[in-house]
Design a binder for these strands. Structure first.
Lengths: 339, 339
DNA sequence: TTTGAAAATCGTAACGTTACGATTGCGAGA
DNA sequence: TCTCGCAATCGTAACGTTACGATTTTCAAA
């Protein structure tokens, strides 16, 4: 119905007695078109409700003005994914500002990321791609570079390739977090790392180590947990640490499961969080505040990161020779007031 | 590079000494093509890594095999959005199963939903649309119906239009929730409703009223809060209720902010949740379990709803004359064990 | 008035696909 | 041998856009 009667360039052209070419050029302010003509064309296009057909344009130019963000969903625990929502928001905003539309392609962690990528590109669905959840020595980077496909990564990898990325300053955050605990008088500090996030873990370990060194505190490997913690595993791990003869009095969590494990373990030991035991947790935008314990949180501006990612990607698409965005975003570590 | 040398139908056709037409038909198992030819063509296409070009096809057929879900993001409180993640997961899975790809279009609540819709469709970006966060008498429904655009809604509205939807049985859930509280001995039960979710609120109020009636309990309008609660507002509201001469001993929350407000208010009153005061909360998949209070939660299978939405939409696209999906999904109300 | 160059506009082809009608090849029946 | 019918394949056009070269118009200078 109304769908079929969608105006195209030819209709506007015949209506105005112009050629399709001129109309096309007028609509993008082509310098070869007379200013008056441009005005006439634009008025007619507006009146007719003309919107350029994505597929006609894409077929001709090879460009779709669409970006795709590939977001693996953490199906076993959606709460871990909550940081993706502000990320999506930031990406959407920046895409719209740049005249692109953003499509979110959610995958399960089990799928082969390589294969998804290949399909996505071949099908001609996007001008550029945002990839996330980088692993060290990520195979997607050489894959995309080889093919000359514009992309930007959320997270660095240990490879030497020159590619665009935005990353969180995990080392700095871990340093600040550890320092904060040291300043509160903690000497023995536990550090929770996830094997599934090895490249982040490495950075965090560096920050932690530096902070401990500046305070002259030795690093005890027993204080460093490095596995894919469930909540139960976190609780077990911290309980064991608290049973040691010289237990920790502070913890730097990797995620909210670590926090909840710590809350369980300290409750059983009748330790008061904020007095006997201090916890630094990743900010989950809201959840931390819901718990009635004083916590220290590190906050990262995820909306800003989303924006940066898309801005960097658009720049790379539109100016392929410009230097690639390589941005490290700092976080803030701060006390959260209890409710 | 490799992007440009992407194989197309013509390349495969010349390679095999066939016409483009025959290759095209062979690839979709056209009955007019000789079985041997089909085999040959498919082998060659596989070998060449052929993937049909989305835009060429879309331009010719008007179909993109892409679905778009429009998800307003709750920028002031991402935690409210967490239910969207399993929804996205379910939609993605069902889309992939049906041979479609799903694009998530996130909007801010302030934007004009109508305008977004129009652009989205005109641009030719999708074969069908999932709309969410319905308001009563939602203008998008006649808009889409008029234009013959396939869509499905997450949520019913009060209109008499015949359109596809999947909805949660809010009335049933509210009934079960209220009954559960009555069974625990609550007589005065507070009900939290959100003005921003009027169409859900109405259903909940009906369920609540029915349950109270079956127990012979009068409905006290003072027990029904109806505004867009922040956490602070929730806490204030419940505190005031608890200050009344005949305070409530149970609460049916609209969202987790209500829960947190109730936790704050009861703590100040030194009431023990689970003994002096009972709370029914929407399941947030994980968060409820993190709180060390016994709660009652109603759970809804969001992944399943996502699947249903997309399945219903695909059916409508592919069989326009089939009856439209109109599905009401029941929830379960259950006690959550404390950690 | 003529000329030349610049300004404005036009026509055609192509992107990759599919729909549709035309064409070829082949075997069976007359 | 001829013809009919069917199976298999082909050629052309079209979807809406843009790039590119060709063409027309305009206007100032000679």
């Amino acid at each position: 119905m109304a769908l079929n009667s969608r105006p195209n360039l030819r209709q506007i052209a015949t209506e105005l007695g112009l050629s399709v070419t001129t109309v096309s050029r007028a609509l993008k302010d082509g310098p070869e078109v007379h200013p008056d003509t441009i005005r006439r064309v634009k008025a007619a296009a507006d009146a007719a409700g003309y919107v350029p057909n994505l597929h006609g344009r894409a077929l001709r130019t090879g460009l779709t003005r669409t970006l795709t963000a590939i977001l693996p969903m953490e199906t076993r625990d959606y709460l871990s994914d909550i940081a993706k929502l502000p990320l999506i928001e930031g990406m959407t905003l920046a895409a719209r500002e740049g005249g692109y539309s953003l499509s979110v392609y959610s995958t399960t962690p089990e799928e082969d990321p390589q294969e998804n990528l290949a399909r996505l590109i071949q099908i001609g669905g996007a001008d550029g791609i945002v990839i996330t959840r980088m692993v060290s020595d990520d195979p997607r980077i050489p894959y995309l570079l080889e093919r000359g496909i514009p992309f930007i990564a959320f997270g660095r990898t240990s490879t030497a390739f020159d590619y665009a990325f935005v990353d969180v300053d995990n080392e700095g955050i871990a340093f600040d977090a550890t320092r904060m605990l040291l300043d509160r008088g903690c000497r023995r500090i536990a550090l929770q790392l996830l094997t599934r996030e090895d490249q982040y873990s490495a950075a965090r370990l560096v920050g932690y180590t530096k902070a401990m060194n500046t305070a002259g505190q030795p690093i005890d490997p027993q204080m460093i947990g490095h596995e894919d913690f469930t909540m139960e595993a976190s609780e077990g791990w911290i309980s064991r640490l608290l049973d040691m003869p010289d237990p920790p009095t502070g913890l730097v969590c990797a995620n909210e499961l670590g926090l909840l494990g710590a809350l369980g373990a300290t409750r059983r030991k009748r330790l008061v969080v904020g007095r006997d035991f201090h916890i630094v947790v990743r900010d989950n935008t809201h959840m931390c505040r819901y718990l009635s314990v004083p916590l220290i949180a590190h906050v990262v501006d995820m909306v800003g990161i989303g924006r940066s990612l898309v801005q960097g990607l658009i720049r790379q698409i539109e100016e392929p020779n410009a230097p690639r965005m390589q941005r490290v975003v700092e976080g803030k570590v701060q006390q959260i007031a209890k409710i």
